[in-house]
């Protein structure tokens, strides 16, 4: 058991940092926004403990203040998409007074049209990807829907990694032994060349002393 815990500590230590995942998610929404020629794009992460959707990434710099903001998962199209596990593309959403009010209250930006797709990895619901205000065309195409699905798959994998990393770190928190081992593993991971080799030898010597 102790071995497993310490192995988890070492594994967690070499995981990419929270910011790296943030960058990955952001790159996905930036590309999604560019490919669709949309005004904005965002990823929500589901917080199952509080039953809320949390803004995890936004494509536009001016929307960065939204990251971390929470909305109830019962609210609006994003919540529905996740509960029903089905993607939706809606145009003219301003005709929906409740939607406009809720969204405006939460983000200050009311889109005219939106695409929302659930982010699912295996059977785990992870969040929602939204693309807002793609250019007006006569009709939406199924090819665009497929493309949205591809982005969703990519975003879901990224969210899944982020969630695993957070869980691993949470498991370590408060465990002094594991935290110490994790800290050493993290430092070693950052070293290169002869310094890394020296570090490894030092740790082996330490292991012998502690025997």
């Amino acid at each position: 058991m102790a071995d497993e815990r310490l192995q988890a500590a070492v594994a967690a230590a070499v995981l990419p940092a929270e910011e790296d995942f943030g960058e990955l998610l952001r790159s996905i929404v930036v590309v999604a926004r560019a490919i669709f020629g949309a005004q904005a794009s965002s990823i929500f992460l589901l917080d199952e403990d509080t039953d809320e959707l949390v803004f995890a990434a936004v494509a536009r710099d001016e929307d960065r203040h939204l990251v971390g903001r929470r909305i109830p998962s019962s609210q609006g199209v994003a919540g529905w998409v996740l509960s029903a596990r089905t993607p939706l593309v809606l145009e003219d959403v301003r005709n929906d007074p409740r939607f406009s009010h809720d969204v405006a209250e939460n983000t200050g930006y009311v889109p005219k049209g939106l695409m929302a797709v659930p982010l699912l990895h295996d059977d785990e619901p992870l969040g929602v990807l939204q693309v807002l205000d793609r250019p007006e065309r006569s009709t939406f195409s199924l090819a665009e829907m497929e493309l949205l699905g591809l982005f969703a798959t990519q975003a879901a994998v990224a969210l899944s990694l982020l969630r695993k990393a957070r869980r691993a770190r949470a498991a370590l928190a408060g465990d002094a032994d594991a935290t110490s081992v994790a800290a050493v593993a993290e430092r070693l991971e950052r070293l290169e060349g002869p310094r890394r080799e020296a570090g490894r030898r030092l740790l082996e010597a330490l292991a012998r002393v502690l025997r």
Partner: peptide
């Protein structure tokens, strides 16, 4: 299932796409 004019809350309608 593409660009369908559908009923929506508030007595109105919107255009929507999806297998839904």
């Amino acid at each position: 299932g593409v660009d369908v004019e559908v009923a929506w809350i508030g007595g109105g309608s919107i255009r929507a796409t999806g297998n839904s």
